[in-house]
């Protein structure tokens, strides 16, 4: 027990927790995108709604939802914990500092891009998940999506959030590989390709959906 406690409270252990939960959340994004793509099927949302019903009613999904929610919370909690500890490590800041000369903006702003994504998530979960699960009004999930994605304001916010997510993952995915000690020369191409799928292709695929509904309907 002591070993687990010292591992999870150490700086390296906390980073490993960030990486682990980050990979888990990325795997969720893949499933989410897979289901979202059924919105494009020309069947007035019948396939999409059947999946949405399955997710809402199949008993095994409940514990998975709780694990997913815990994953988000843990990722955010450890992120804030590390951010505070890191700030404390430099109580006096430099008068002149040129971080752009030695590091990328995405790596330096991961905390802030993550914070924006979290704010988006709260709104996003409230728009689709909370309202349909806890306040059902008889309209299908497909109709909810149509309604939300026909609002230019919501679509703009959604697209900005995806840009922040992309920027967050641009640093996060390769950073997780480094944290797990896998970032070696021989895996470099594989890691770069995997990171590209998550930070670039995935957000673009997500962005297609609101644009489709806004422009096509």
């Amino acid at each position: 027990m002591n070993k687990i406690a010292s591992f999870t409270t150490s700086s390296v252990g906390r980073k490993l927790l960030m990486g682990l939960t980050g990979f888990f959340l990325c795997s969720f994004l893949l499933v989410h995108l897979y289901l979202n793509l059924f919105l494009l099927k020309q069947d007035r949302g019948s396939t999409f709604d059947s999946y949405a019903d399955f997710m809402a009613t199949y008993p095994l999904i409940r514990p998975l939802e709780i694990i997913l929610f815990a994953g988000f919370l843990l990722h955010a909690f450890v992120g804030v914990w590390l951010w505070i500890a890191n700030r404390l490590a430099r109580p006096v800041r430099y008068a002149v500092n040129r971080p752009s000369e030695n590091s990328t903006l995405s790596s330096r702003t991961a905390f802030w891009t993550g914070t924006f994504v979290l704010i988006f998530l709260v709104i996003h979960v409230n728009t689709f998940f909370v309202s349909s699960r806890f306040f059902p009004s008889g309209i299908s999930m497909y109709e909810r999506v149509c309604e939300a994605f026909q609002s230019p304001l919501y679509v703009s916010f959604y697209l900005v959030a995806l840009a922040f997510l992309a920027y967050h993952l641009k640093h996060g995915v390769q950073s997780a590989f480094q944290t797990f000690g896998l970032k070696r020369k021989k895996y470099e191409t594989l890691i770069t390709a995997t990171a590209l799928v998550f930070w670039l292709m995935l957000p673009i695929a997500f962005a297609v959906l609101p644009l489709y509904f806004l422009l096509a309907h």
């Binding site: 390296v12 890191n86 404390l88 000369e101 590091s103 990328t104 330096r108 950073s175």
Partner: peptide, 23 residues
Amino acid sequence: ESMVAQMDAEGFGACSNTYACEA
């Protein structure tokens, strides 16, 4: 384990993989 524990006890921050150190 010992070196990481001492590094944390001294109050150094955690690695954010910005790679400014290498640069």
